[in-house]
Nucleic acid binder design. Structure first.
Lengths: 130, 130
DNA sequence: CTAAAACTTGACGTTGACGTCAAGGGCAAG
DNA sequence: CTTGCCCTTGACGTCAACGTCAAGTTTTAG
């Protein structure tokens, strides 16, 4: 298929697809006249890339990750990076979860009229709420 | 305290603090000579702001949120936005966790020599791994 | 054959949360 | 007094993941 169809089926812009190629995330064949041609598998590939992007991974990480996923073979150096990135993701998770709790408290505060809800815990220094 | 100390204690740059002020997220008193002065409570305030930023909230949203937090009163419109943001965070969390699992599988694959580990589940269409 | 739709590369624009000078003012220590 | 660190206000730079023309080529529909 050509770039327009892939874009439609993977629900991204053609610009995004060219960007992915530029970053080494996505390959494409070419017709004689130079137009990009993709196999069916590209749809899932692009969806995978999107998934990793929305997870907040950088294209730099993804570009190292994809070959590892494909080859299922990881040299020690890459392993080091993966471990490092895993830690970074964990940190992000922790931060996001804290933020999520904070938002939940706010939402509670707003939905519950104003029952003597959660005493403090919206401001800082509330100690772990459970 | 002055800006340098606040920056140190809240673990952000002085530039960030000035940016927060610019965005209306953080107030400061001034000495006669014009230097910013903050109360102790500013430390927690800045940490809260940071937390909301890591949650992916924009400064525009935060600037409307902070007074609501202070007043412990949130109008329905703001509530709607919060619920939306909460959902966005949840989606991000799910995405990040999926990415984390992928990384874990890769790391496993690399550390374990190559036991017939987890069959597929690295590529697409692996169905929920639990 | 022709016009529209889809494609190409190239290059500049956007947004948010700051980083990073630049040029100067203020203040405790020696 | 002057050295040195902290502070001030600009104002331009950055980075990522594209968006958005522009100008030209190719493919498709009629």
């Amino acid at each position: 298929m050509r770039i327009g169809e892939l874009a439609g089926r993977a629900d991204v812009s053609t610009r995004a697809l060219r960007y992915y190629e530029e970053q080494g995330l996505l390959e494409s064949g070419r017709t004689v006249s130079g137009q990009r041609v993709y196999p069916e598998s590209a749809v899932d590939r692009v969806r995978l890339i999107q998934e990793l992007f929305t997870a907040g991974l950088s294209s730099r990480l993804i570009v190292t990750l994809l070959p590892a996923i494909d080859a299922r073979r990881i040299d020690p150096e890459l392993l080091q990076r993966l471990v490092g990135e895993r830690a970074a993701i964990e940190a992000k998770l922790v931060g996001l979860q804290a933020a999520a709790r904070r938002l939940d408290l706010l939402i509670d505060l707003a939905t519950h009229p104003d029952t003597t809800s959660c005493p403090a815990s919206l401001e800082q220094g509330a100690a772990q709420p459970v």
